[in-house]
Design a binder for these strands. Sequence first.
DNA 1: TCCATATTTTGAATCGATTCAAAATACGGT
DNA 2: ACCGTATTTTGAATCGATTCAAAATATGGA
Lengths: 353, 353
Amino acid sequence: MAKGHVRLADVAKAAGVSQGTASNVFSRPDVVREEVRERVLNVARELGYGGPDIKGRLLRAGRVNAIGVAAVEPLAYFFDDPWARSLMTAIGEVCDASGTGIAVVSAMNEERLAWNINSALVDGFILLCVEGGERLVELTRQRQLPFIALALGIEDETIPAIGIDNVSGGAVAARHLLELGHRDIAILSIGDVDGLVGLVAPERVDPEMEATPRDRMHGYWQAMAEYGIPREAVPIQGTLHDRPSTLTAMEALFSSDNPPTAILAMSDKVALFAMQWLAEQGLKVPEDVSIIGFDGVPEAATSLPRLTTVAQPFAEIARRAVTAILENALPEDHEALDLELVVRDSTAMPRLR
Amino acid sequence: MAKGHVRLADVAKAAGVSQGTASNVFSRPDVVREEVRERVLNVARELGYGGPDIKGRLLRAGRVNAIGVAAVEPLAYFFDDPWARSLMTAIGEVCDASGTGIAVVSAMNEERLAWNINSALVDGFILLCVEGGERLVELTRQRQLPFIALALGIEDETIPAIGIDNVSGGAVAARHLLELGHRDIAILSIGDVDGLVGLVAPERVDPEMEATPRDRMHGYWQAMAEYGIPREAVPIQGTLHDRPSTLTAMEALFSSDNPPTAILAMSDKVALFAMQWLAEQGLKVPEDVSIIGFDGVPEAATSLPRLTTVAQPFAEIARRAVTAILENALPEDHEALDLELVVRDSTAMPRLR
DNA sequence: TCCATATTTTGAATCGATTCAAAATACGGT
DNA sequence: ACCGTATTTTGAATCGATTCAAAATATGGA
């Protein structure tokens, strides 16, 4: 069998029509006379022509009908990380509806990432800026395609972004615990800076923490202040947003003289790890310890007990991001979307001592 | 600001060099004299040229450096379903290593799917044939690109595919339970055929079931036979591979006079749902009921208790699939890869009655 | 200085389609 | 039979780069 090297031009010649007509047979069949259409189609079949090559069409159209989702993470991140998956699922739903494709682009190292971003065949990018966001934005800018940043960790109004109101989200979470009567509350923070592991002093938060955890922290503190609790009274344990550092943090928290009755976790992922640790220690949630997460990933709804959390409006974020890209209508300002408290089974009144 | 409509040709003209030289400046900088290179680069910067447009390059090169992963499912499936995610993670790892991109292509309805497959900018496809596999293969064939089918439900040697040895995998699972001493074993089957929900008679398995569950079933039976247990003695409850039908199946199983002491689940997903149901009923795993899954998804390693399962060699499957596509070296035969029994905490000896 | 060789640069062809103004053909009415 | 309008078809230009043989230029040795 010969190589599949039949071009539209070949078909046109063999069928004795012009290339223009042959093109119409495939892309605008209604415009060509039935008899001719049939003939061309037959010739195409005989020649083994598989329809117009997408690459040629694309070059002409200049549009790919796909959006790229990029992160400074390995590709597996998109299918592994609960937050990323929640977002991808939501993005998938919007794209399904509009017939848009999704390309995931990623890389651990800079060089690869630059190349991947430059060679991705997409009409625009959604950037997951959890880590190395600044660099990611810079790289994407060069590509000169519409892009929109999610979870942007820096404050730069020139970057089109969709954000969430982490401050009031944090406040809502903390207020929930406080209303239940908790006063001994500990915080599990998240970040990728080595220095912020272990016990973190409050004065280090502003200078050292990235925007997302910092804002959540301020939300927590704000609610605490409403109840007259000074920030120094609330221990902060820094995690690297992974299992080992979370377990270490939990150990530190519960080996103290005055272990907390409730935990504010800055992500569901960390909260879920913490719950596993508690279960292993024989501590019951929520009877012994209450815990509230952040993000609202689906795992939080099926854990045992089901995790109370502050949910991001993933669907709305995805909808805005995708339409912004597809219609090239990037938001001018950084509007922050609201989060929603989802009360489930991991929080309750503290046990009487 | 003018639209970013600067072409390589514009830069070339403005810099006073030929288009060929301008092209070399970007794609083979070593071949052009430094002085000239600088000049061209400067002009490019002034004009706001963002480097060679990938679409033009692609048209010439004929290669996209990306593979498509397709399924007859909504896009969200890739980020939701445990099995799909395990595979995607593994595929991601292989692609990361080779600098290949991934495009996920999917659609619920035929028409959309056909269009999506035809317009995906990829060098080849990996097909997740869990559902509607036959149609998916047919559609992909027309695209005339290399493709390889995974989890193919039909026996057709002309379709390049990578399979796993479901029969011996099933036998390994069943043998594990039998060796522990279980004799009252029930099967939770999977499928997307409405008719195979609820209690399924053994004689309906061969004519009605798809290849994957059918093979697993035969594996189960084979091991049963070794222990002198006739297939009629093993109740089969059909599920639709989702939560509701699994819960229904469990209810049916445990409302009988002689509830099973162990369960063979045809997927980890179903096994995990079943475990949730058992927990809700106050039945302890593995003390009251043992359960073994199938697939080896990561969730199975972090559930409580951790799920014993028969694991697919995801990494090996991904490696073979990706290299087959990239090197256009599609396998000639349907070699079936071996599965591995992973004993964890969800299986134990049956309680003495 | 001249020639042979090495290094750069050029220009046109190519990749595979789509598009659109203009030309050709068909159709209907008188 | 003829004309005006409607429908089809044509052919060349275009999308934005890469490629490569040939031409131009530089370098070095005698």
